[in-house]
Design a protein around this nucleic acid. Structure first.
Lengths: 116, 116
DNA sequence: TTCATACATTGATGACCGTCAATATTGGGG
DNA sequence: CCCCAATATTGACGGTCATCAATGTATGAA
């Protein structure tokens, strides 16, 4: 998938050999960092945890506002970030909004680390 | 490991059932978020990628400064963050500093996602 | 000891982020 | 149509972060 750098025969001087194309491209790295940015907040981790623990597979915002010590707008903000990161799915039914894990999304995030 | 919430028989009103203890505690979440904070930067992902791709298993700073479009102090700063997150190991030999992946660290980070 | 190299640290700056209060929007019920 | 409940959006504020230029530190060589 990645063209490996040419793997120089070792410069006679010392350290600092390859350079060439870095293993992970700049754009690719930026993209992958987005997922971890979404995961890099304690309250968002707790949100994911609560949604995952729910037996029904989904939680409405009021289920999520109480356990965290945060105001409702802040929780909504975090949920939006998780949705935009592709980790949560949002479905509005009546007045309520139900959030559920996107199937395989967490595994995919874990996969990024395995294939760095 | 976690005491599950009592799982109310469903309040007659509608939504908003459990509350109780959130699946992931506040302190625990804060701790786990630290690793993802370290991973939440494109340049740090690239650094990890380069170190991992190196056949010798380690890279000195000059190997890392060129591929990224960053100054040497900035690279040093990112490396420090990765070391403090427990992802990289630093060993100084002579004038050079060699960085290598901490064995199992990336897998452990991936494990956090699996056991949220 | 003096100099050059490799790397780390400091201080400053501009950008981004988490949080809240206030307000807007949407949907259901009377 | 009007009111209320649930959620989203906006604007503002304080804190953190990524980056760089300048400087400090340590190691090896002359």
């Amino acid at each position: 998938m990645n063209l490996l750098p040419v793997l120089e025969p070792a410069t006679d001087d010392a350290c600092c050999a390859p350079a060439g194309t870095p293993a992970l491209g700049a754009e690719e790295a930026k993209q992958k960092a987005l997922v971890f940015k979404a995961l890099a907040d304690p309250n968002r981790l707790r949100l994911l945890s609560i949604v995952k623990a729910e037996s029904s597979g989904e939680s409405c915002v009021c289920d999520l506002t109480d356990p965290l010590d945060l105001g409702q707008p802040t929780v909504s903000h975090h949920l939006k970030i998780l949705v935009e990161a592709g980790l949560l799915h949002r479905e509005k039914r009546g007045t309520w909004a139900y959030y559920s894990l996107v199937p395989g999304a967490l595994e995919e995030a874990a996969g990024i680390l395995a294939t760095l």
